[in-house]
């Protein structure tokens, strides 16, 4: 169980050690201490290991993660879990802007609040936020699920493609081409699964509303041919 102290070891050395973890390695649990807001902590990990970061981080924490299960015992700066491929990232505190941006897979859990542009251009990632999210969440989201137990800010799901958005609280405003949609049995099942994976037990799937694309913006319509110029 290696422990890396970022107060003593450099960031590049830390990330290199994590990148060097081979298949079948016995070093399956890693602790990172004293992150003190450092950028790019545990970026590009490509192994089924567990990593706990003891403290708050800066930009791009756990970006491009593949397979690893990463827990941040604090808050994260902009771009956390950006372009995640698989595995999971759990943030015990808050997340700054564009958490989970462009994520292609895996699960991002934010136990606190997420600020603006959470899940922007998401492409298959699942994101569960225990608190509230800021404006422009899931902007141009293509696939995956965004589950918000609290409230959403302005322009939720602006220009959204096929990402599925669930909000339990209020939505300040919907973005262009984003509409409320019926919550059917299959959506309840998805919510139950994702809430379970996030360890959230005091929130019922039936309390959410579903939002998604009206499909008027991204589908070519011959009636609008003039507008496409």
């Amino acid at each position: 169980m290696p422990t890396i102290d970022l107060a003593e070891s450099g960031l590049r050395s830390l990330n290199k050690q994590l990148h060097d973890v081979g298949e079948g390695s016995n070093e399956t649990h890693w602790d990172i201490i004293n992150p003190r807001g450092a950028h790019a902590v545990a970026v590009g990990v490509n192994a089924a290991i567990a990593i706990t970061i003891h403290g708050s981080t800066g930009y791009y924490c756990a970006g491009m993660n593949r397979e690893a299960r990463i827990v941040v015992q604090g808050s994260v700066g902009p771009g956390a879990a950006e372009n995640m491929m698989s595995g999971s990232v759990t943030v015990m505190g808050d997340a700054s802007q564009y958490a989970g941006a462009t994520g292609q897979g895996g699960l991002l859990v934010i136990q606190g609040n997420a600020s603006s542009r959470c899940g922007i251009s998401m492409k298959g990632i699942d994101i569960v936020v225990r608190g509230n999210i800021g404006h422009m969440a899931a902007f141009m989201g293509q696939a995956g699920h965004l589950v918000v137990c609290g409230d959403a800010g302005d322009a939720l799901g602006d220009s959204v493609y096929e990402a599925k958005l669930f909000v339990r609280g209020s939505v300040k405003s919907l973005g262009a081409d984003c509409i409320e949609k019926p919550l059917r049995a299959e959506h309840l099942a998805v919510l139950e699964k994702l809430l379970g994976q996030a360890g959230i037990t005091d929130v019922k799937p039936s309390e959410f509303k579903r939002y998604g694309s009206a499909r008027k913006l991204y589908n070519f319509s011959v009636d609008h041919a003039d507008a496409y110029g």
């Binding site: 003190r36 807001g37 708050s56 981080t57 800066g58 930009y59 808050s75 700066g77």
Partner: peptide, 12 residues
Amino acid sequence: YVAFGSEYRALV
């Protein structure tokens, strides 16, 4: 106190 930082690093 109240403190402001462009990043959390400034406050640690």
